[in-house]
Write a protein that binds this DNA or RNA. Structure first.
Length: 423
RNA sequence: GGAGAGAUGGCAGAGUGGUCGAUUGUGCCGCACUCGAAAUGCGGUGUACGGGUAACUGUACCGGGGGUUCGAAUCCCUCUCUCUCCGCCA
């Protein structure tokens, strides 16, 4: 969520920038400011009362010792009277605070000034393209047909065991998955990221801290018996490592990478988007996460984008980078670059990675801070990106590298796979 | 799953109703001693919110929530978590 400092000090600018996300924040911002004033003034009165109360209580002890019973009784009566009034003040303050937090949670992050105007996905700006779109041979097939032809992925078997969206990978299909995970983790490590293995379930506190709860509760699998949530991305457990933490500036940027299975209910999805590997309930992903200083976070974002680009190049896939427009960005992001690879057989672009700077929006809920040069605590900036999500990469690999003789494995992956061809 | 113990500052660990935001040790920072270091000595060292240009200052926080009391880290209730033992088990 946005900080009160951001809102109170630059009210008009905040409203202007929210408009880029097509969010009319005028009323909400005014209400935030009013609630904050109410909270502050209430606290002022309450604190003064409590101070007097504390002093009275102390004096009662002293009076009792000196045997001044009457005076002690008078003080006692005065305290009892004040406590009644404080109850109301406390209720008022708590109410203002709760309303304030709830309201702040409904206000999206401010888009960076570098975010282009726009409402829809079509308004995203193509930043850069690379790789070559292959000309496929006669009779080239989409990945779901290739998966069947070479017996790599069994979608129906997954339906039997769990349901739609839980495919079973077999033989070279399974080995390709494992190869990609290892390849991505090794590359990340070489790029300076510390590998971590997080839990695949998180508690509610973690879900709130990274913003999945309460809004996106329906998107997560919830194990109600133990009140745990299956993670929709490793971002959740990894970022929560830094919840309620004050970091040393010299340790920034923190660079973590993690492989995890990801679980998403994807309620409401349908059509060609969910065909084959395009949208699954369970998939594998290697995530990169950074915690950084405000001064350096955009440098970090650039490095992350460059890193993801290098990965896709090594996989010899045609790609493009989109700078998301205000209307297509996520609620929490300040600036997002999407990576898409071209699926030659489906003749469409598939999103394979999303790299974002959340600035202090996520850190504010996480309470992830660092000590700045003035020894004061300051909110960190958080960033994350997929590097990469497997299913659509697998789809693109199968489709783009297919030949009449079989599917060619890109050089960088051969040693990881242990085979050069799927045939 | 059963039984018991516990949760206090970065860490360790005192504190069982007032003078406790909290003894002490350790770590860290500063200063002194030293050519430098170690050792030693002295001083400092939590977070959040409010007031103040600032120095400083008010309030809250001893796992979470509630209660008793003029007053709670301390007593009571409750929840969560951790540890030990037993059982089961990859």
């Amino acid at each position: 969520m946005l900080t009160l400092k951001q809102i109170t000090e630059n009210k008009d600018e905040v409203i202007r920038r929210l408009a880029k996300k097509h969010f009319d924040g005028r009323e909400a911002i005014e209400t935030v400011i009013a609630l904050n004033e109410k909270r502050k003034s209430t606290q002022g009165v309450l604190d003064a009362n409590l101070a007097e109360l504390n002093n009275l209580s102390k004096s009662i002890g002293a009076l009792m010792k000196e045997g001044k019973k009457d005076e002690a009784e008078t003080a006692r009566a005065r305290v009892a009277e004040m406590k009644e009034g404080n109850k109301q003040l406390e209720t008022d303050m708590k109410e203002a605070e709760d309303k304030l937090t709830a309201l702040l949670c409904t206000i999206p992050n401010l888009p960076s000034e570098q975010v282009p105007e726009g409402k829809h996905a079509e308004d995203n700006r193509v930043e850069k393209t690379g790789g070559e779109i292959p000309t496929l041979h006669e009779g080239a097939q989409p990945h779901w047909d290739l998966a069947k032809k070479y017996d790599l992925i069994d979608f129906e078997l997954g339906v039997k065991i769990a349901g739609a969206g839980f495919p079973v990978y077999k033989g070279k299909g399974a080995r390709l998955q494992r190869a990609l995970i290892n390849f991505f983790l090794d590359e990340a490590r070489n790029a300076g990221y510390l590998e971590v293995q997080p839990p695949y379930v998180v508690n509610a506190a973690s879900g709130y801290a990274t913003g999945q709860l309460p809004d996106k509760e329906g998107q997560m699998y919830h194990a109600t018996a133990d009140d745990l949530y299956l993670i929709p991305t490793a971002e959740v457990p990894v970022t929560n490592i830094y919840r309620d933490v004050i970091l040393d500036k010299k340790d920034l940027p923190v660079k973590n990478t993690a492989y995890s299975a990801c679980f998403r209910r994807e309620a409401g999805s349908y059509g060609k988007d969910v065909r084959g590997l395009n949208r699954l309930h369970q998939f594998d992903k290697v995530e990169i996460v950074r915690i950084d200083t405000p001064e350096h976070s955009y440098q970090s974002l650039t490095e992350m984008v460059d890193y993801v680009q290098s990965l896709i190049n090594k996989l010899e896939l045609p790609w493009r980078i989109l700078r998301l427009c205000g209307g297509d960005m996520s609620f929490t992001s300040a600036l997002t670059f999407d990576f898409e690879v071209y699926s030659a057989a489906q003749e469409r672009w598939l999103e394979v990675s999303s790299v974002s700077n959340f600035e202090s929006y996520q850190a504010n809920r996480l309470k992830c801070r660092f000590r700045n040069d003035d020894k004061k605590t300051e909110l960190c900036h958080t960033l994350n990106g997929s590097a990469l999500a497997l299913p659509r990469i697998v789809a693109a690999l199968l489709e783009n590298h297919q030949t009449p003789e079989g599917i060619r494995i890109p050089k960088a992956l051969v040693s990881y796979c242990g085979f050069e061809w799927i045939d």
